[in-house]
Amino acid sequence: MKLLAIRHGLLLLENQIPFFVLEKLFSLTIECIPDRSHDVSLTDFGNDNLKKKVNTSDYHVLHLLHQCYLPNDESWEGKGDEDEIEFPKKKFRFPSASDLDLAGVKFVAGTGEDMFNVKFDKPQGLSRWFHRARFEIPTLSIYDDTEPLLRNLIAFEQCCLAVPRYMTSYGFFMDKLINSAEDVKLLENAEILHNYLGTGEEASDLFNNICKEVVVGRFYFEKTCEAAGNHCRELWPRFMASLRRDHFANP
């Protein structure tokens, strides 16, 4: 419990100490350890992915953790000029998971550790009349410490103009996707959410409150959300989804 409390304290935005101060304190501490078997560094967390992203220009521990969550794919839709798009470029209503399900969209759990690797694939050609669109979203496990982690990363993005607001966009995206406990259950059945909080209402409340009074700025999932919203408004996918659900749900 002490380790959990310490980790929680280290991630609070108001507790951040400049990295150069931490490095000086760390070096003084290491020098007092007798008979060290090997050299250790402040950024030696035993995480290979983290080591690749450690930068001497990181402001503090929370910034280092934020670097860990940045997208890995250079071709991802969110890459580009930070000032190119301000949200919303044009107003559109992004449907919830339940609305997308009624429109015949199939939710699929994404693979890999990149939580921003969200894809919406719509069938093309003749197959569009018979096959379902796919919404691929990486798996997210929700624990008791998930909300404070997301809140502090989002707060850091809000306070520092030089940091891209990836976590803010992710929180806004999940808020629009999840409106109720039914949406949580739907994503749980698709293995996209692993809810360890307890009830679906608790998970729904987490995402519905995570971006209140938060400035999104550039929304990195705009193209994906717009494609899903346009598909949801089409009549044929809804008709085929209703046909499968009402008449072909079982043998």
Rank of each mutant, 00 (worst) to 15 (best):
T146N: 06
G112H: 01
P71F: 06
D81L: 05
L11F: 09
D101E: 10
T139A: 15
A227R: 07
E147R: 07
L4V: 13
F248Q: 07
D121Q: 08
M1Y: 03
F20M: 10
H131Q: 09
L4R: 10
P164F: 06
F107Y: 10
M115E: 10
I178W: 00
T168C: 07
S37T: 11
K106Q: 15
E113L: 02
F156G: 01
W129G: 07
P95M: 03
L10M: 11
C225D: 08
F107V: 15
L42K: 03
K122H: 05
E147G: 03
T139W: 00
T146C: 08
E113C: 08
G104E: 02
M240N: 02
R134I: 11
F239A: 12
E202Y: 00
D73L: 11
R7F: 07
I30K: 03
R165I: 13
R218S: 14
A228G: 04
L3T: 14
F207L: 06
R36Q: 11
L4M: 08
Y166N: 12
F219S: 08
L3E: 12
N195M: 05
R7C: 12
G229L: 00
A155W: 00
D175L: 00
Y59E: 14
V118N: 01
I142M: 08
P95G: 06
T111C: 09
D83Y: 11
F239L: 14
D101C: 08
A227P: 02
Y59G: 15
E222S: 06
P138E: 13
V105P: 05
C232Y: 03
A241V: 13
I6W: 01
A227Y: 01
F116D: 10
P18M: 04
G80Y: 03
R151V: 09
L42T: 12
P34I: 01
A103L: 04
L243E: 13
R128S: 15
C32P: 02
A155S: 14
A190T: 11
G217D: 08
L235I: 15
F239W: 13
S204M: 01
E234G: 07
N152D: 04
A227Q: 07
M174S: 06
P18V: 14
Y196C: 09
P71T: 15
S141G: 07
F130T: 15
K2L: 06
F221K: 08
W129Q: 02
Y170V: 10
L153P: 04
K122G: 04
T29S: 06
P88N: 03
D101M: 03
F130R: 09
E222D: 13
C225T: 12
D81T: 11
S242P: 00
F94G: 01
P164A: 13
S37R: 05
E201I: 13
A190G: 09
E234S: 06
D145W: 02
P138K: 07
F207K: 02
L22E: 14
N179H: 12
